[in-house]
Amino acid sequence: MPFKYIGRTTDFKGKTLWEIVGNLKNYGIGRYIKRNVFERYPEPSFMKIVKVETLPSPLEASMDDLRKVKVWVEKTFRGRKFPDVVPLKSATYKSDYVLIPKDEEKKYSDLKLEPIPEKILPRTTNFPPLLKELIYRDAEVKGETLKEEPKLKIIYKESMQSCYRVAKEGETPNVQIAYGLGTPISPSLYQGIKLK
């Protein structure tokens, strides 16, 4: 019977992890899975199941309370393999997992990974004009003289998945975080506008 979907559309496409793992021999250890949303990246992202622990089914099974499972995987995200085995649990209810068929597994296992080039981010940037003025005035009140222009230390969010790192002392960053509009990715949007 063909399905007719009603309601809001979703980006997810696939099954929950338990739906896949619970129907496989030995809980699918050694099999490959992937998340459908990560297919948006040009680099390959997939996971190999290493270990599975089952979790109890919810008391009242519904679309809002789907069964979860604890799975340890060897994770490859955007062409970069994680050094350690990664546990999955809280996101396993998402209906977005796809099992890779056995005949395609070789393609993934033999894949020559070409990770995306690492971004080296600057350690500091300029202060916003008003704050800079404030710092100068504060120094003046205290009777100090600033030898060089004050720089704002940039705070980055760091996660296992991030494809960037902060430049070491004296290293030249390959990305600029400029104050203001910066260099646009899509210059066509700024036609007729003067960019500093």
Binding site: T125, P128, L131, L152, K153, I154, I155, Y156, K157, I177, A178, Y179, L181, G182, P184, I185, S186, S188, L189
Partner: peptide
């Protein structure tokens, strides 16, 4: 192209705000 540009601007904004707040 608009999406990419908006994302870039928003990322910059959040990074800068985080840094200023930290300072």
């Amino acid at each position: 192209e608009e999406e990419l540009e908006l994302r870039r601007l928003n990322n910059n904004y959040r990074t800068q705000m985080k840094s200023i707040r930290n300072y």
